[in-house]
């Protein structure tokens, strides 16, 4: 997560969000597009890391469409980016819950892709980390992304995933240890 310093003269992203959210809640799609452009990268990254590249575009769209519909419910007590982020995590987890034992599809569309492990890339630690994360088992990867990449606490993760915080902690540790093996 990269933070930016802004000078006093320029509005912060949070201030821009506040203004645009108010407009978008009243129906201004141009304002919502600005919101999209500011947050799409981060949300798409989150989706990609949690679910893999195959559904990332679809799920990202779904997240923003949901956000548009729920905009009136955003009360402004927290930062908009936090609210959007939680909405995104909820959508991601709900999608995962839909995964079923038997899945039939009929029609011209291709069957859903299996999650492809990332390619190993030696051009830098960050690329390695993305590739290594892609290789983690889903549960461990989810917790690692939520805690170390996105900054949720174990209590919050427990609430989101329906596990005890202790489980989250031990899964996180296992994820980190596995990544350490991949990266060294």
């Amino acid at each position: 997560m990269v933070s930016t310093l802004s000078t006093a003269a320029e509005p912060t992203a949070a201030e821009l969000d506040r203004a645009d959210v108010a407009r978008a809640a009243a129906g201004d799609t141009a304002a919502f597009e600005r919101i999209y452009r500011r947050h799409a990268g981060r949300i798409h990254g989150l989706v990609r890391r949690m679910m893999g590249p195959a559904e990332a575009d679809d799920v990202t769209q779904e997240i923003f469409v949901r956000a548009w519909r729920k905009l009136e419910l955003f009360r402004g007590e927290a930062a908009f980016s936090t609210w959007l982020h939680r909405l995104a995590v909820n959508v991601i987890l709900a999608r995962r819950q839909q995964a079923v034992r038997h899945h039939e599809r009929f029609g011209a569309e291709e069957p859903p892709h299996e999650r492809r492990p990332g390619r190993r890339d030696t051009t830098g630690l960050r690329m390695d980390l993305e590739a290594a994360m892609a290789r983690l088992p889903e549960g461990a990867r989810r917790i690692f992304v939520l805690h170390d990449v996105e900054g949720y606490t174990h209590e919050e993760i427990g609430a989101l995933l329906g596990v005890a915080p202790g489980t989250s902690k031990s899964q996180l540790h296992r994820a980190r240890m596995t990544l350490r093996d991949y990266l060294t």
Binding site: R42, H44, D57, L125, L129, D148, V149
Partner: peptide, 29 residues
């Protein structure tokens, strides 16, 4: 090592999505 992993995770960059999803979003809206 664990510290390095954690720090790398914290500074993971978020590139923009490979394609512009806005047209699809605005169509649904």
């Amino acid at each position: 090592d664990l510290r390095a992993v954690g720090e790398a995770a914290a500074v993971l960059e978020t590139p923009p999505p490979p394609r512009d999803l806005w047209p699809g979003i605005v169509a649904q809206i």
